[in-house]
């Protein structure tokens, strides 16, 4: 598999920061009040082979691994299963991407706010202790209680509903193997 490294076309970036395994390397340059923001990611190109199933690296937003199913010469039973699976995958992707984004945003807001109010009391350079962070973790769980429980129920339903079609596909494959 070919690794695609998107290198910044503009070599005149001002500060270059490299780290051996950094996933996303970001450089910024502000010149004459114009911000150029370039980002390059280390990633592998999604496969173009349509005769096999592939599983990808974790999505940067949702942490879930996407699956690309084969589309050449697929029997209808399998196709239906793939469609169902893709729907669930998309639903999961949307939920977790959104949820994680929200978490990060809320966390940053909390840190900023707490640091601000702390610096008024303690003077300059306040720091946050793990104990103060845990206030946020609890708060986040409490705020999202309904969301989490609803997602949990939905996920269980969807996950179990995929089992029977998967079984059909497995039987179908087995039968075709016997015949062929």
């Amino acid at each position: 598999m070919v690794l695609l490294l998107q290198v910044i076309p503009n070599q005149r970036c001002f500060v270059k920061i490299t780290k051996q395994y950094s996933h996303v390397i970001r450089t910024r340059l502000l010149h004459r009040a114009i911000v150029y923001e370039k980002e390059f990611k280390l990633r592998s190109r999604p496969p173009t082979d349509r005769t096999r199933d592939f599983i990808g690296p974790p999505d940067t937003a949702s942490n879930l691994r996407p699956i690309i199913f084969r589309s050449d010469n697929v029997p209808p039973v399998e196709k239906r299963y793939h469609e169902k699976y893709e729907n669930v995958m998309k639903w999961n992707q949307d939920f977790w991407a959104n949820h994680n984004k929200n978490f990060t945003k809320k966390k940053e807001e909390y840190i900023e706010q707490t640091l601000k109010s702390k610096s008024k009391v303690e003077g300059e350079n306040p720091t946050l202790t793990p104990g103060e962070m845990s206030v946020f973790y609890k708060q986040f769980l409490d705020e999202n209680y309904r969301l989490h429980t609803q997602y949990n129920i939905e996920w269980y339903k969807k996950n179990i509903s995929l089992l029977f079609p998967a079984l059909q596909v497995a039987i179908n494959r087995f039968v075709t193997k016997l015949k062929g």
């Binding site: 280390l42 990633r43 496969p47 096999r52 592939f54 990808g56």
Partner: peptide, 11 residues
């Protein structure tokens, strides 16, 4: 590891 940014065949 670099392994984690690969697409892999599911087999």
């Amino acid at each position: 590891s670099i392994d984690e940014v690969h697409w892999k065949e599911q087999r």
